[in-house]
Simulated assay, not measured.
Amino acid sequence: MLPRLTVERARQQLHTTFPTANAAVQVLERLGIVLEVTGQKKNRSYSYRAYIDLLTQ
């Protein structure tokens, strides 16, 4: 997994629709696995917290 992702990248990797990929990313966010880092409503970017935590130690 890359330390950064977008819903579009998830959609491409999962070979699914944008709404399905968006729902999957939202689940990851609710679980605290990814963190939204742009503060935007569109074109959001998420970071994979475990990787970022390891890299910033």
Rank of each mutant, 00 (worst) to 15 (best):
Y46N: 01
I52F: 14
E8W: 05
T6W: 02
I52Q: 04
H15T: 10
T56L: 11
Q57D: 10
R4W: 14
R44Q: 12
L31W: 07
I33Q: 00
D53E: 07
V7G: 00
A21V: 04
T56D: 11
N43W: 07
R11M: 08
T20H: 05
P3E: 06
R11L: 13
V37S: 11
V27C: 03
Y48S: 10
S47D: 10
Q12G: 07
Q12F: 12
N43L: 09
V34M: 14
T56A: 15
R4H: 10
L54F: 14
R44Y: 00
A23N: 14
E8H: 01
T6V: 04
I52D: 04
Y46I: 04
G39L: 02
F18L: 12
N22K: 15
E8K: 02
V7L: 07
Y51W: 08
A21M: 02
T17E: 09
L14S: 15
N22L: 15
H15W: 03
A21W: 00
A10W: 06
L2H: 04
V7M: 00
I52M: 09
Y46K: 09
L54E: 07
L28N: 01
K41R: 15
A23K: 14
S47L: 12
K41L: 12
L14Q: 08
G39N: 12
R4K: 13
K42Y: 15
N22D: 08
E36M: 04
M1S: 13
T38Q: 05
R30Y: 14
V34S: 09
V37M: 06
A23M: 14
R30M: 04
K42P: 06
R49L: 03
Y51M: 10
T16M: 02
Q12L: 03
K42N: 10
L55C: 15
K41F: 09
S45L: 08
I52K: 06
I33Y: 06
T20A: 10
P3M: 11
T56P: 01
N43V: 13
L14G: 05
S45C: 11
S47V: 15
G32Y: 06
L14E: 14
L5H: 00
Y46L: 05
L54D: 11
A24M: 01
Q13R: 11
V25G: 01
L2I: 06
I52A: 05
N43I: 03
R11W: 00
G39T: 07
N43R: 13
G32P: 12
E29Q: 02
Y48T: 06
Y51F: 15
L55I: 15
A23Y: 12
Y48P: 12
